[in-house]
Design a protein around this nucleic acid. Structure first.
Lengths: 203, 203
DNA sequence: CTACATACCGAACGTTTGTTATGAATGTGC
DNA sequence: GCACATTCATAACAAACGTTCGGTATGTAG
């Protein structure tokens, strides 16, 4: 019942990493079973042994996107709350390291496929919903702590913050010289300062 | 020397529109010569007659992206200046109409290909640079008119504004129910109000 | 009318794609 | 050691791909 000469999960993870490498270099347009196999010096038979088909390969890649972003080596260890926590969350998204660049390259690239496939579309929509929820929680914390104007709608603020961050990701990917890590961080800090200062504004 | 029974430019434009339709529905992943030919009820021979190959097809599609955004039916006719002009520019980008949705769907989808092909990458980078320049001009106008804090760096503000807008585009595409046109406009207005109010903030 | 250039179809080409089947290793359970 | 399950390479497969090309129709130029 259990002839396991190799660790199934470990091998599967190897394939997953090969997929990652292919996507980081050639995008979803260059994702083929043979490319994945070549990236790990194996045959297509191995790939299909761990993933039923290309569609499962893509779905799995999108799965790890969210997880990888969350499991990123945190920039600052202490479990922050409120505004600092929101800051960390936003910075964790940005392409500040080579690894972060790869993640975001894949992330941005995934939008083309996700917008055309109903199943992937729904999955991605849910994922972004979840990210917004995390940001909203941090924002509500910040409001309770008086770091952000309590009057503002937390969900709207979360949407705005995620919009700004995702857009910044795209700009940074296309103009890495113009937007090096330090510069990105400055823009985030300016953005957050703007949110905090926006206390005496009405419609 | 000029046997022209059909208008060459007009036919080329027809092909261009067929490409557009394919991209809007199936993204760059679904862009094939046969799909384009089928979309206009013609043969692949016709397509290759007006465009040398698939690569030229993609390049042309990216070309019209910027142009289409600029030639959009303006939401408000009067040639505004300063902050209102900036507002219009941002609103022109957003997917507020079915046509705007199509444009942005293609736009967002183009990032996967553009990030993997050096030539397309450079072209897109230049395009975004150009958009930022337009926004910066409007921002500098607004600063001169006292609508925005004069102390802030105009280029940074332009980057922030474009980041926010592009990110909002992505969110709106993936959550159209959550972010209907009116809601998007509200978020933009909130964002601009935040910029205007950010006058008493220091590092 | 003759020559010629353009417009376009239709089909073929070689390649690459995802998928599937065969079979040889190599282990475990009894 | 005799099944049997897992692992994986190899190879085949049809489908779809980008590209190329011969052929026909239809115009203009002289």
């Amino acid at each position: 019942m259990s002839p396991a000469r190799t660790d199934h999960d470990a091998r599967r993870h190897d394939v997953s990493e090969a997929v990652w490498r292919v996507l980081a270099e050639h995008g979803f347009a260059g994702l083929t079973l043979r490319a994945v196999a070549a990236a790990m010096g194996a045959s297509t038979g191995l790939v299909t042994h761990y993933f039923a088909g290309k569609h499962e390969l893509i779905a799995h890649a999108l799965d790890i996107l969210e997880a990888r972003t969350r499991q990123r080596p945190r920039l600052e260890a202490p479990a922050a709350t409120g505004l600092p926590a929101l800051r960390i969350h936003l910075l964790d998204i940005l392409p500040l390291t080579p690894d972060g660049v790869a993640i975001n390259r894949i992330w941005v690239g995934s939008w083309d496929v996700a917008l055309s496939d109903p199943a992937l579309f729904a999955a991605q929509a849910t994922r972004y919903e979840r990210i917004r929820a995390v940001l909203r929680a941090a924002i509500e914390d910040a409001q309770r702590l008086g770091e952000l104007p309590a009057r503002a709608d937390a969900w709207r603020l979360a949407t705005t913050a995620l919009s700004f961050t995702h857009g910044l990701v795209v700009q940074a990917l296309f103009a890495p010289d113009r937007l090096p890590p330090e510069h990105q961080i400055e823009l985030v800090d300016d953005f957050l300062a703007g949110l905090a200062a926006d206390a005496d504004q009405s419609t």
